[in-house]
Design a protein around this nucleic acid. Structure first.
Lengths: 206, 206
DNA sequence: GTCTATATCCAGATAGAC
DNA sequence: GTCTATCTGGATATAGAC
């Protein structure tokens, strides 16, 4: 095979894998791992079901890869947030806004949330997936640190920092799920509603 | 068959059905409809898989029956709440407390939440289940009414009432999911954290 | 009412042709 | 790289004995 063709093949391979991943993400999120058939994925990707095995060796492999992506993106985003030169209050606000916004325009964000939830809730997932799910704790830790900082500087309410971080995360999660259910009808609620859990007075922007 | 025996059989039948339902609820909640095998249910119920078909004609039938229960219970609870002779503030507070408490001691509440979510998120569910899911709107309506009343009497913040009801529901939902994930480790967070979304000042109980 | 055995079907995965 | 054909396994559902 000429170098020219080899390059082309590599490109095709990358494109195909991306096709498959993106279609599988939607399917896994909206049907679940078990209910998603390998033919669902191949059909959505406009390839034969046999060809799919040329790119992935099983349905589970695709799932695990997507789940790893989901966590990597989520963790990277949260760590980046923590490092920003902003006050804890601004960080929380930004996190809420970004999340709500992301759901609105980029459906993949919501799909990733659903995937993470699915992996966390359901027991019938590959062992590798179970390992990845353990990273979940890290997300809570980062958020607890931000909350604690906000309490130290006096802006945040003084409830148990872990509780606050839990309620915060679970609320965003709940919204992501609602978003997925609503589909195009979803309209992001005012971020200040959630902010009320953290601070006493929401500064008026008028 | 003597009337005596007929009675006994009826009783056995009821007990069995209840066994099956309760085991299926746990399994559906923790594995999902598709991943739950009929043998999982029969094994958990200590009966042969053949016998299960004596009580239910399919896996889907059990799922639909449980989902209907879940919605009926949820709607009944919310409508009862609305009718209570309490202020909107007290109603919201009670709803939060009851939910958090229910999760803690009665796992079935959390399982029902998970079932409802699963049915709402996943497309691969029986048509009958899809019909039941439409009742979801009713829950939001009731809650929006309570929020609106709380705004009229001046106790609640003045964000869009629908937004507030959405955030409220989705937050409880998120907590239910977290609860399910945490299992025995779950410790209900302070209800006042969530109350912060509704009111400016949480009255101190000290 | 309950079990074991069996028939049927469908999905996952492989093999081989182009 | 891509497809069609095929093998294999597992899960649903039924049948028939006790």
């Amino acid at each position: 095979m000429s170098p020219r063709n080899k390059e082309l093949n590599e490109e095709i391979k990358d494109v195909r894998r991306e096709q498959i991943r993106s279609n599988a993400l939607k399917l896994f999120a909206s049907k679940g791992l078990a209910a998603t058939k390998i033919t669902d994925i191949s059909t959505a990707s406009n390839i034969s079901q046999g060809l799919l095995y040329h790119y992935y060796k099983s349905k589970e492999e695709i799932f695990v890869e997507l789940l790893r992506d989901a966590y990597d993106k989520m963790i990277a985003a949260v760590l980046a947030l923590e490092r920003l030169p902003l006050s804890p209050l601004e960080k929380v606000k930004l996190a809420i806004e970004k999340s709500l916004q992301g759901f609105d325009e980029n459906k993949d964000t919501a799909y990733y949330y659903l995937l993470i939830n699915q992996a966390a809730i359901f027991e019938a997932i590959p062992d590798e997936a179970k390992e990845i799910v353990k990273k979940r704790a890290l997300l809570h830790e980062v958020f607890t640190r931000i909350v604690t900082a906000g309490q130290k500087d006096g802006t945040f309410k003084k409830y148990d920092a872990k509780d606050m971080s839990v309620v915060f995360w679970t609320s965003l999660n709940g919204l992501a799920i609602y978003n997925a259910i609503q589909g195009a009808k979803f309209k992001a609620p005012d971020a200040n509603i959630l902010m009320g859990m953290f601070i006493e007075e929401v500064p008026s922007t008028n």
